[in-house]
Design a protein around this nucleic acid. Structure first.
Lengths: 204, 204
DNA sequence: CCACTAAATGAATGCCATTCATTTATAAGA
DNA sequence: TCTTATAAATGAATGGCATTCATTTAGTGG
């Protein structure tokens, strides 16, 4: 037995490749080349490219910081988790469509994250039947916000349509004048605090 | 001049094709065939396939219901807009990565939507410099939630890992016992109401 | 030493977006 | 009516991609 390849090695190589060349550079051929192997050899270890993305996703889930659950107030734990979750996946937005439809059975690290977060919600007094929905709501916000981080700075520039859209143009200009370094962070903070206080009210 | 093709026709054909075959079926070849034209002919009217997706996106933006802005309380208007926005794009999740990075200049209908929504926020008493961030926060939540709608029903089934994840497994089971028809709607409602009441507090 | 099996190979397949030199057709100007 | 400019459509290439498969290689247990 004992070939050169295994799932851990493939995951590691894929992450290196993504870091160096981005998701466009992550092809089965390039992945194989980085492992000094023929592309077809990969298929002895993964069923498809989607499988590779799944391995990467699950590894990233293990990087999300859930350490604050059980180590302080629920609000602080959610805040730490959410910011960390967003930061990790803002560098990996092409995975978001994959995660969103991914059965957790296939992703043990992701499942482990859910377990820690669920326990944190339960201990904070959430009724059991609302825990999953609350996490899903937060996660949806986090995924959507991860895209914002990568958006171009001038995404909201109305260009030639400025006169036709006075309210929007004024709002964009007014935000720009605040001179925030990362506008995406302002929106994320605003939404996250709203969700934390709104969902926090569900606790018994 | 006057060929068979124009942007409106391409958009319409693309939408028909997506409805019938899904986004996997939307290829330049298939699009051309549905218009009785050679694939290369499309490139006289659009620069790339991404352009086609952009045309589709902008058309969908015109389907989002913004009519409640200026016709009732801000909370109700946001609710109507958000549900409609999510419903439209839940059928078109492959566009979400495109929208998220799309400069609004290139999408007049999308820009028109932002104008109406911005005016609604301003009239409701939002400070101008918080309007864009608030809309972005809501939009992030909406995009993330659009994915949930299409997720398989058993996405949270922990499978063989059930014993290792008691809190999460209990929470999933407890939600399932509620027997909601569309679990995604519960999470969306929960998050949206939290955002509405949290963001609403910014009004002067 | 043999037989089994996991793993790697390299050549093919089929699909895809995109390009380009060329042709067709239409509208405007003389 | 003839000419010319131009927009639009064509068909044949190109290069990249994931994936398949028959075949070979190389270890391991009996």
């Amino acid at each position: 037995m004992g070939g050169v390849l295994d799932k851990a090695g493939i995951t590691e190589a894929a992450l290196r490749l993504i870091e160096k060349k981005g998701y466009d550079g992550l092809t089965m051929a390039a992945l194989a080349r980085s492992l000094n192997v023929a592309p077809s050899a990969l298929y002895n270890h993964v069923k498809s490219k989607r499988d590779v993305l799944l391995l990467v996703e699950d590894h990233l889930a293990s990087l999300v910081d859930v350490s604050a659950f059980g180590a302080g107030p629920w609000e602080d734990a959610v805040r730490t988790w959410a910011w960390s979750y967003r930061d990790v996946f803002s560098q990996h937005t092409p995975l978001i469509p994959v995660i969103a439809v991914l059965p957790v059975t296939d992703a043990p690290q992701t499942l482990a994250m859910y377990e820690t977060v669920s326990a944190g919600f339960r201990d904070a007094g959430f009724p059991e039947e609302r825990i999953v929905s609350s996490i899903v709501a937060l996660e949806s916000f986090i995924f959507g916000s991860a895209y914002d981080v990568t958006a171009p700075a001038d995404i909201f520039d109305p260009g030639t349509m400025a006169e036709a859209t006075p309210s929007f143009t004024g709002a964009v200009r007014s935000l720009a004048e605040q001179g925030h370094e990362r506008p995406a962070d302002v929106a994320f903070s605003l939404g996250l605090e709203a969700l934390i206080s709104g969902l926090g009210g569900l606790r018994g």
